[in-house]
Amino acid sequence: MYANRNILVLTVPADITSTDIAHLYDEISSVAATGGLQGVVVDCSKILAADTIQARRVFRVAKLARLYRLSAVFCCIREGVATALVELDFKPGDVQTATTVDQAMQQLERPDVNLAAS
């Protein structure tokens, strides 16, 4: 976990327990408290499998970020994870996603280029 260009990059651990997510919440809250934070990137590359409960747990991070007026971009979700979630009828809704950490950062730096908002 590191902060770069005022963007906090967090990595979701493979197991996605509620304790793991609580750690991510703490991290966001403490960094947000210091001010100057532009957004949060949530790197999901470590996740090899996820059920819908775990997926919802991960995406709730965006809700917490929003409380601090921060956008969250989820990135590096693996193809197999995505297909499995969709087969389980999981609906990602209006979350922001990106293929790579770099792209996620770019997206946070250019919030105007958001198709969902147009």
């Binding site: 693996r78 996603t97 293929t99 969902a116």
Partner: peptide, 15 residues
């Protein structure tokens, strides 16, 4: 819809 959701998850929007 499923294709749209899956691509959204991995980071791309579908039109």
């Amino acid at each position: 819809l499923k294709i749209g959701r899956a691509t959204k998850l991995i980071g791309a929007d579908t039109i």
